[in-house]
Lab assay of single mutants.
Amino acid sequence: QEVDTIELTRQVKEKLAKNGICQRIFGEKVLGLSQGSVSDMLSRPKPWSKLTQKGREPFIRMQLWLNG
């Protein structure tokens, strides 16, 4: 299904801030990505339709983390 990447990243940033989790830790533990990649993804999320399967994976992980 289509994911609203802008809304998703907004919710993730909100939860990170609320729980005092830094992007570096979130990136390493949840997404398996560097802090730079995570920062870029959270500040400039690409539309779901423009992402490859590999590009979608971190957003799917974010969704699971939010719902977890």
Rank of each mutant, 00 (worst) to 15 (best):
Q1V: 06
Q1D: 01
Q1I: 10
Q1F: 10
Q1K: 15
E2Y: 03
E2C: 03
V3L: 13
V3E: 12
V3A: 08
V3G: 08
D4A: 03
D4Y: 02
D4W: 01
T5K: 09
T5Q: 10
T5P: 03
I6A: 15
I6K: 15
I6C: 10
I6S: 05
I6Y: 09
E7F: 15
L8F: 08
L8C: 06
L8P: 13
L8E: 13
L8D: 15
T9F: 07
T9S: 08
T9K: 09
T9G: 11
T9Y: 01
T9I: 09
Q11T: 08
Q11N: 05
V12P: 13
V12C: 02
V12W: 05
K13N: 09
K13C: 02
K13S: 03
K13D: 04
E14F: 02
E14H: 02
E14N: 11
E14Y: 02
E14M: 15
E14T: 09
E14R: 11
E14P: 13
E14G: 07
L16W: 06
L16N: 06
A17P: 09
K18S: 10
K18T: 10
K18P: 03
K18V: 07
K18A: 11
K18E: 13
N19A: 12
N19P: 14
N19K: 12
N19C: 13
N19Y: 03
N19M: 14
N19W: 05
G20M: 05
G20W: 04
G20K: 14
G20F: 05
G20N: 15
I21T: 06
I21H: 02
I21Y: 14
C22N: 06
C22L: 10
C22F: 08
Q23D: 02
Q23W: 12
R24W: 08
R24K: 11
R24T: 04
R24D: 11
I25W: 14
I25V: 13
F26S: 01
F26Q: 01
F26R: 01
G27V: 05
G27F: 10
G27A: 15
E28R: 12
K29D: 06
K29Y: 02
K29G: 07
V30F: 01
L31M: 06
L31A: 04
L31Y: 03
L31W: 08
G32M: 05
L33Q: 05
L33S: 06
S34Q: 09
S34F: 13
S34H: 08
Q35D: 15
Q35P: 15
Q35N: 03
G36M: 11
G36I: 11
G36Q: 14
G36C: 12
S37A: 15
S37W: 09
V38R: 06
V38C: 10
V38W: 15
V38K: 07
V38H: 04
V38S: 10
V38Q: 04
V38G: 04
S39A: 13
S39K: 14
S39T: 13
S39E: 14
S39Y: 10
S39V: 11
S39Q: 13
S39H: 11
D40M: 11
D40I: 03
D40F: 05
D40H: 09
D40W: 07
M41S: 04
M41P: 04
M41F: 13
L42T: 02
L42P: 09
S43V: 11
S43I: 07
S43D: 15
R44H: 09
R44D: 15
R44T: 13
P45A: 05
P45N: 05
P45R: 07
K46F: 05
K46V: 09
K46L: 11
K46P: 15
P47G: 09
P47N: 03
P47S: 10
W48F: 03
W48E: 00
S49T: 09
T52S: 15
T52G: 06
T52K: 09
K54N: 03
G55C: 07
G55T: 07
G55W: 07
G55F: 14
R56T: 03
R56A: 02
R56E: 00
R56K: 12
R56W: 02
R56M: 05
R56D: 00
R56I: 01
E57V: 06
E57C: 01
E57N: 11
E57I: 10
P58Q: 12
P58C: 15
P58M: 14
P58H: 08
F59N: 00
F59D: 00
F59E: 02
I60H: 09
I60D: 04
I60E: 08
I60A: 11
R61A: 07
R61Y: 03
R61P: 00
R61S: 02
M62F: 13
Q63F: 05
L64A: 15
W65K: 01
W65C: 01
W65P: 00
L66T: 00
L66G: 00
L66V: 05
L66Q: 00
L66C: 02
L66S: 00
N67D: 06
N67R: 12
G68A: 11
